[in-house]
Amino acid sequence: MSSKTSKVALTRDDGKRLDGRADDELRPISIEAHVLNDADGSALVIWGKNKVVAGVFGPRECVPRHDQSPYRAVLRCRYNMAPFCSLEEHGRSGPSRRSQELSKVISEAFENVVIAESYPKTAIDVYIDILQSDGGTRCAALTAAAVALADAGIPMKDMLSAVAVGKVEGRLVLDLSKEEDNFGQSDNPMAFASRNGEVLLYQMDGLLTREEVKAGIEMGHKASREVLKLQLDALARVYEQPHETTVPLQLAPGQKFAPPQPA
């Protein structure tokens, strides 16, 4: 995924990144909660060009029975990419190995925050669909899933916010774009609990020094607080501006959904 030397120049002459951002700047993000009618909870996250929808069902009967736990609800998360999500070719159907790995680490992040003991023998199902991908989909997916779980009223100890840090041409940068992910020197996605900043997801590849690891965590945690604000704002707006349930997939990143005013 990352290489030692960039095949593509990732810094402009003015020192900014290819898309004009500063090193510690997030891409524009839109979050809308409660976008699906049937799901118990749902969310749309538009993060740069990424477009991700999450839907939650549960607590509900756990089938197959052998998946059930007598002590707690079983949390089942599935990350799945649509075949039309990429700029490049049409994707194959079925979960790739990458999707399966992501499903696992995402499930485990939420197992920490969801209070599952209240609902033994049930399942809480979280489905995250990547409808458009442009680097950093797993962070968008985690962020969307957290909002969908809160929207569903699933009791949680914490909210969870995710962001990726990376290294490009020797510098730590926040929220890698697709090119930076492909041609940069490290990709370091992470997710934080809202109450105390504990790390719920942490992965990296490439090469980082110890100082870079530390600085990366600080940069990531700070940015995750900004993401948290957007998540909470999305949830609040469900109640402050009730409107028809719809997926406003056409929103530009950073734009908020403006429901048509009732007559």
């Binding site: 925050v113 809160a150 100890k157 909210m159």
Partner: peptide, 8 residues
């Protein structure tokens, strides 16, 4: 006011 999961 609206409070969220994890809020004191």
């Amino acid at each position: 006011r609206i409070v969220f999961p994890g809020e004191v």
